[in-house]
Design a protein around this nucleic acid. Structure first.
Lengths: 146, 146
DNA sequence: GCCACTGTCTTGACTCGTTCAAGAAAGCGC
DNA sequence: GCGCTTTCTTGAACGAGTCAAGACAGTGGC
């Protein structure tokens, strides 16, 4: 995402274009699945004077606007990624917490066949799938230790 | 789950049978998807002198032992449910946070077809699906207000 | 039934992610 | 430029969850 792209995206979403917001988009583009602390550090590398509150506000605003997607696996701080074509889910490593993208297994709008849910009056707008397991690095570490 | 069932379950898992643990199982059985605070309140209704730490320990021990399942939707405290037959997922209401069970859409081990993931050396042991939307109560409230 | 061992609970303090509030600063449309 | 409105800064607070040390209670062996 170039600076100009980010600007267009912000304007398109009806948001003001500010330095902190551009920096947040930049950092998230660079480091997908960055948690809040990482985003904060990254933003401060670009704009040293930014407050943590501004970063929280930006992340919230960008998420509400649909430019970012927020994921929050159990036991970890919130993580963010650019909302792209969006047909993927996440693998989370139980031991190191690393997050990886996986293409959707089914192909499109996976697992949204919730007839059961909608029959009961629940309006479903998103299905979030998290695969839990061990990443290659952690599973070899564990094996070699035993 | 009767007291005796709980005892058997605890012994079967190699855990000591203690009052706080029985109370935790009791509360979770009564109120599925209870969050930590609710569990704490419920346990204290049975055993007023129990510390919050004991409840955390119990929840952790029971979860490790596979007697409870922990779910943690973004923006909410950890929630617990009895680990039963286990082929269901969860609906979470974006406005009130209520959690409801849904039968698995696909039928069995849904979305576990992560060839993509396992090809990359990731060992997947669980797929967690969360459907986000609005529960009947919240969606009618919103509609009537507008 | 009693004892000792080990796992569990109590107490109290603490960390860290996140949110709240009030005022200053900076975008944006005119 | 000017003024309005949103956004950012500053500083404090909240709450879920964790850590540590010692007291207590289940459990298995005698």
């Amino acid at each position: 995402m170039t600076p100009t792209d980010s600007e267009h995206a912000l304007r398109g979403a009806g948001l003001r274009v500010t330095r902190p917001r551009l920096a947040v988009l930049d950092v998230v583009a660079e480091r997908p699945h960055a948690d809040t602390g990482t985003v904060l550090d990254g933003v401060r590398a670009l704009l040293p004077a930014v407050s943590h509150q501004a970063v929280y506000d930006c992340l919230g605003a960008l998420t509400d606007a649909g430019l970012l997607r927020r994921i929050q696996p159990a036991g970890s701080a919130a993580r963010y990624e650019l909302r792209v074509g969006d047909n993927h889910h996440h693998l989370v490593c139980r031991s190191c917490g690393a997050v990886t993208d996986v293409d959707c297994a089914v192909g499109h709008a996976p697992c949204l066949a919730t007839d059961d849910a909608e029959a009961r009056g629940f309006e479903v707008d998103e299905a979030e799938v998290i695969y839990w397991g061990r990443c290659p690095a952690c599973s070899t570490t564990l094996r070699s230790r035993s």
